[in-house]
Design a protein around this nucleic acid. Structure first.
Lengths: 207, 207
DNA sequence: ATATAATATGAATATTGATTCACTTTTTGA
DNA sequence: TCAAAAAGTGAATCAATATTCATATTATAT
């Protein structure tokens, strides 16, 4: 609706808000929610503590905004990759490639993502989870749809329910990302997505 | 070395210690480390706060002891399952079955395990991780050895490095455990381990 | 240029919870 | 039975930090 209706002041406000958010991401992704104080965020962003509270109701909201923003853009990009044209196999390749790239380009993201999506979260994070999980589930459903379509048109065998295939694939990708994270030289994330996909594509058992 | 050399008093000490530990597991697995106070643990175990400090140096040590104890027994049982006689396929079945049982019999364990092994940990937990990770890695290596052996004797095709296969399988199992955790009726953990293993065993692509 | 409103500041406050330790109670051994 | 040692107690201490708000600064409009 409103495009350039933002006044200079309003744009500045937005910019400042982003400054705070950026400083906070750095800190949260490095040390985790509990181990970052508002003091630190204030120092890093070069605002006074009181100012942070002008922008965010409290520490939790500040954190939520970050998580929601990041995870939404992450899930959006995955969704885009899944919708790119191509047959089922090509779409899965896109997924594996894109998720790998997104993560490796943004270590912060991976850390935030892992602290949020793995591990169980307690307290206020539980609600947060719900919104984040929504995006995650959408992704999974989309992947499941690809498997289903492949099964329907005979390209795939139905070795498991599509949804389980989707969840499994996602976790296999996570496996490789984890290994990469632990030791990038020893376990580089595969150039070729088929290195990962073959775990699903090719049968292990000799027939 | 010393078997029944424990005096009545010493046995009582051990028992009390266990009482505290038990109360603490309940709380930690329900609410997470940060959200449990020593006060709560004292109340639940019916000792005074001061007494807790007679048994444990501090809150972190108390927590560490729990994690180490639980994860060690967990990894030991997995290892036992992997060593049970049988061919490669049978061993993998044992693994899938056993890990599933261990988790479902002990929801607490699953929660502790997930908070420890997934997600990233900061602070003191990092060291802890190292010890816990040791047991985890041993398990993985053992599984990898099974894949390797199967590949060598021609029972398996080498669709990926054995270690990657092991990590992938473990995460596929986690996938199913997660789904079960979220919604046990809708996603029961499969009776038949092959439901899970087939994701690896059977090729997805129609040949 | 000046008054008024909007914004920014950070010292002071409030809360939470880990840890200590002086004191009480119980156990032990002579 | 009794004194010394061991164990148990929990109110008081201490530290960390989230949040507030009276004050100072800056922007806006007349």
């Amino acid at each position: 609706m409103e495009k350039e209706t933002l006044s200079r002041r309003e744009r500045e406000k937005l910019w400042q808000r982003q400054e705070i958010l950026n400083a906070a991401v750095d800190l949260f992704s490095e040390k985790g929610f509990q181990n970052v104080s508002m003091q630190e965020i204030a120092e890093k962003s070069e605002f006074a503590i009181g100012t942070l509270y002008k922008f965010f109701q409290n520490k939790e909201h500040l954190y939520k905004d970050i998580i929601l923003e990041h995870s939404q853009s992450f899930h959006d990009e995955i969704m885009r990759a899944l919708e790119e044209s191509g047959d089922e196999v090509e779409k899965l390749r896109n997924f594996v490639r894109t998720k790998g790239e997104l993560f490796r380009n943004d270590l912060q993201l991976i850390r935030l993502y892992l602290t949020e999506n793995r591990g169980l979260s307690y307290n206020f994070k539980a609600n947060l989870d719900e919104e984040v999980r929504k995006g995650y589930c959408d992704n999974l459903e989309q992947i499941a749809a690809i498997f289903k379509s492949g099964i329907n048109n005979g390209r795939f065998k139905k070795i498991a329910e599509p949804y389980y295939l989707a969840a499994s694939l996602d976790n296999i990708v996570n496996t490789f990302l984890f290994l990469w994270l632990e030791n990038p030289e020893r376990h580089p994330y595969p150039e070729n997505p088929d290195t990962i996909l073959n775990i699903l594509f090719e049968g292990l058992i000799t027939s």
